[in-house]
Design a protein around this nucleic acid. Structure first.
Lengths: 335, 335
DNA sequence: TTGAAAGCGCTACCAT
DNA sequence: ATGGTAGCGCTTTCAA
């Protein structure tokens, strides 16, 4: 059996209160007793039960992270940053891959609640805001990362998607592209909407236009669907010379479609992605993409969630970071 | 405040024991009371506290997963599978990125212990077996995945690394390569050792040889180091015509080195990876690699850990799965 | 069937 | 400075 605080107390000939004191480093104890208790704790390999301690009103030192899919490199990178910062602050991370399914979101939320996590970070789209109600009532902190839920008073850490979209447009425009198209994942996500809005405004500002028919939205199998939709786009009459993909996975699908159709990137087609995951640096050709500061976003989300940083941020609910364009070899002037 | 079992009991006019019964679906209660209690639970948005329930001797329904780095796609994919199967069985997953550092491993182990996880899955190298002692004493189940700790009685789910190494060798040999080299990560890992052993035996069986000078081992920055070491290999006199990389990340580094040196893959150099992560399908050129059945491995590890499958496996400690070669475009006959 | 009550391991308050 | 003790929310006997 695992040693408990009682075992330590008995062995050290003190009360459990004394042991508790040294565990938590508070209260007054003579250095002598203190050392003795520590000695016994080590001898017994005593590890305080966080379960019991949590039950007594303390925190669980656990936070939950909801993402669509932890095996998607973008979210894996976010998770890494969140985990790291959490760990730094003494928190463990429970990963929840929602697959963008409401029923899974609901299940995870309920579980996290039952486990009394100290906070949750949401990086997945939530259709039904009511699902968050338990946490809101509960006053369990919530932070959104890379996603937004307008109308909900939660801390949010995002990249400026609108600006990212514009950057993409401006880059393509500067290269001389005029026939543009867009591939997006779920267009209901605020991030998708903003990226497209930015892209479109960039195009329109230069006198061009982006008809809705040039925007394709896809479901969950990002690279597969990206490939399918890109092929569609490329095979219509008057095909685009450049495609803006709202994430790297879609861009990879597009790359694959181009290859299959015998088109060379970037000479026959320019492709630009979003996220700057590790994938972007290894594709053929390497992908020009709009980078999000994932590491900083993850770290910040944790800080804001746990409240460390909040004196500094002082009430600001949204933290908006700037994207930046990473030009590699998938974009060039049209022929 | 969150509703407790007392609130429900009071509101429903029954004892907390009755409520407990319906939560856990055991004991005898009249259907009438039962329905009433359920009604009240819903009305109050009651969620049982897993903390309290765990304290009373039940499980925490949480497992820990130790990997070097969750943002490494291989481990992200493993994590995904583990999470999925865990979720299926009602368990949450705590992610721990150890960075291959003993002090981090130790810290995580102690944390997981304090949180009374129901089991841990280890996918990271552990130098000091003693660190696992608390769990062993504790009888907390441990399972290894994609890593092995010979001499420790824990369930292990791995791919046959030796065979994988041989497959790589045989593929390269069949293409006509004779000057071979190997890039590996930490050579102390049993997986690394086995892959190299398999590769070497494959080479030797065909009458060739693989001098130690042709084997380079690297630290943690896999792609960066892979690039550096590959460049070294390629710039020595009598450079290899093919390099076997013990994982995809190293292969990517090698691809980058070749590119930088102006060498074409596969015409000037063949490269073969290991793992078949998503990366392998998007590199330039697409990577020939030895695939591990990550999804199945993750699922199996959970099953064996939680004990569901164990009647079937019946005592077998090691579950060895077969790798398979995925031939893409990074390997070809030497000039 | 139903409920009273004894813990689970720990924290925090209150005496001493 | 030290220890006794009342909970925290739940499970589980054991009586009724």
């Amino acid at each position: 059996m695992k040693a408990t605080i009682y075992d330590v107390a008995r062995e050290a000939g003190v009360s459990i209160a004394a042991v508790s004191q040294v565990i938590n480093g508070k209260g007054k104890i003579s250095e002598e007793r203190r050392q003795e208790i520590i000695r016994v704790m080590e001898m017994l390999h005593y590890q305080p039960s966080r379960i019991a301690s949590a039950l007594t009103g303390k925190k669980t030192y656990t936070i939950g992270l909801l993402v669509p899919d932890i095996s998607n490199p973008f979210f894996a990178e976010i998770a890494r940053a969140v985990e790291e910062q959490g760990h730094q602050l003494g928190y463990s991370l429970i990963i929840c891959s929602t697959e963008n399914k409401d029923e899974r979101v609901e299940r995870y939320i309920s579980l996290l609640q039952q486990k009394s996590v100290d906070g949750i970070i949401i990086g997945t789209g939530i259709d039904n805001k009511k699902m968050l109600k338990p946490f809101l009532d509960n006053e369990t902190p919530i932070a959104m990362i890379a996603r937004e839920m307008p109308g909900l008073d939660v801390k949010t850490v995002i990249v400026d998607d609108y600006v990212g979209g514009r950057m993409a447009a401006e880059h393509l425009l500067a290269l001389g592209h005029r026939r543009l198209a867009v591939l997006t994942e779920n267009p209901k996500l605020s991030s998708s909407k903003e990226r497209i809005r930015g892209f479109r405004e960039g195009v329109e500002l230069s006198g061009g236009e982006l008809p809705d028919s040039r925007i394709k939205a896809c479901g969950d199998e990002l690279v597969k669907e990206g490939k399918r939709l890109a092929a569609q786009l490329l095979q219509c009459e008057d095909p685009p010379t450049a495609i803006f993909c709202c994430n790297d996975l879609l861009a990879i699908g597009t790359l694959q479609a181009a290859k299959q159709l015998g088109m060379k990137v970037p000479s026959d087609l320019s492709v630009i992605g979003f996220d700057n995951t590790i994938l972007a640096s290894v594709t053929d050709p390497p992908l020009t993409t709009v980078a999000q500061p994932t590491e900083r976003m993850g770290r910040t989300a944790v800080d804001r969630l746990i409240g460390q940083l909040d004196k500094a941020y002082d009430g600001e609910l949204r933290t908006v970071m700037q994207p930046n364009l990473v030009v590699r070899s998938s974009t060039a002037a049209p022929l």
